[in-house]
């Protein structure tokens, strides 16, 4: 469910030239072709633009099936748009708009498919470097990404446990009984993780830690601190100590 599409599912796949292309180049290409698509006003030209998109998917080692998979979450919205535009304006306009959205979504999704998540995070960090003078610390942004990635499965698991526990108490459909313990546990976990990182003094001040230190923080330290951060009982909703 939470597997990052950039690498997990495709780890066995031979890497295509598209996979090797620098992410910055791909993003630029998306921006340029996106602008170009907005300028197309004829639905037949727009439909023809699907051909290069298909070729790009084939070049990356995917096919029409993957294209459909990418569009499926959007399918209903596209149908509604097509019918609404078709009945109220013209069918040509409806087809044009729906095709344009589909092509843009397909091209953006192709970048996601061919670029590992970590590479995109690195790209974001690098793009943020010029903003350092405005108080943006790229290393801290990287830490935030890493922590979030690490804790999505942890918190999802907590949510599942709480749902099961409250279902056993007959509270399975009570949103307060589900939300409140989850949020309190998240806050407790955050306090424990922050304590663990601060205790190791790896992130004092604005000095970006070198990569070695950061890798350690993310790969092992948060894991141990997350093990130490035992989930509090639901009863801890009662007033708890704050430093």
């Amino acid at each position: 469910m939470i597997a990052a599409p950039g690498h997990g599912r495709d780890s066995g796949r031979p890497r295509s030239p598209l996979h090797r292309l620098a992410p910055g180049v791909k993003l630029l290409a998306l921006a340029v072709s996106g602008t170009g698509l907005v300028l197309i006003g004829d639905w037949r030209v727009m439909a023809a633009a699907l051909v290069p998109v298909l070729l790009l998917y084939l070049a990356a080692g995917y096919g029409p099936r993957e294209m459909l998979r990418q569009l499926r979450p959007l399918m209903w919205l596209l149908v509604i748009l097509l019918v609404a535009q078709g009945l109220m304006e013209s069918w040509a306009l409806g087809v044009l708009i729906v095709l344009r959205i589909a092509i843009l979504v397909l091209m953006a999704a192709l970048i996601t498919l061919t670029t590992p998540t970590e590479v995109l995070i690195e790209t974001i960090e690098r793009l943020l470097t010029p903003f350092r003078r405005f108080g943006v610390n790229p290393a801290k942004v990287g830490l935030a990404f890493s922590l979030a990635l690490r804790f999505i499965p942890v918190i999802s698991d907590q949510a599942r446990q709480i749902r099961e526990a409250q279902a056993a108490r007959g509270l399975g459909r009570n949103p307060i009984a589900l939300a409140l313990p989850l949020i309190i546990r998240t806050l407790k976990m955050a306090a424990d993780v922050a304590d663990a990182i601060e205790a190791r003094s790896l992130y004092d001040g604005d000095e970006p830690p070198d990569d070695r230190v950061r890798a350690r923080v993310v790969s092992t330290e948060t894991r141990t601190s997350c093990l130490n951060a035992s989930a509090p009982e639901t009863s801890s909703i009662s007033p708890s100590s704050r430093r």
Binding site: M1, L143, F145, S146, L147, A148, Q158, A159, A194, E198
Partner: peptide, 23 residues
């Protein structure tokens, strides 16, 4: 300045928002 503690809260609430999709 954003402290390390703030970063942790920011990251964990982002993770919480992601987890909410699983309900």
């Amino acid at each position: 300045r954003i402290s390390t503690r703030d970063i942790v809260y920011i990251a964990l609430f982002a993770a919480l928002t992601a987890a909410l999709a699983l309900f």
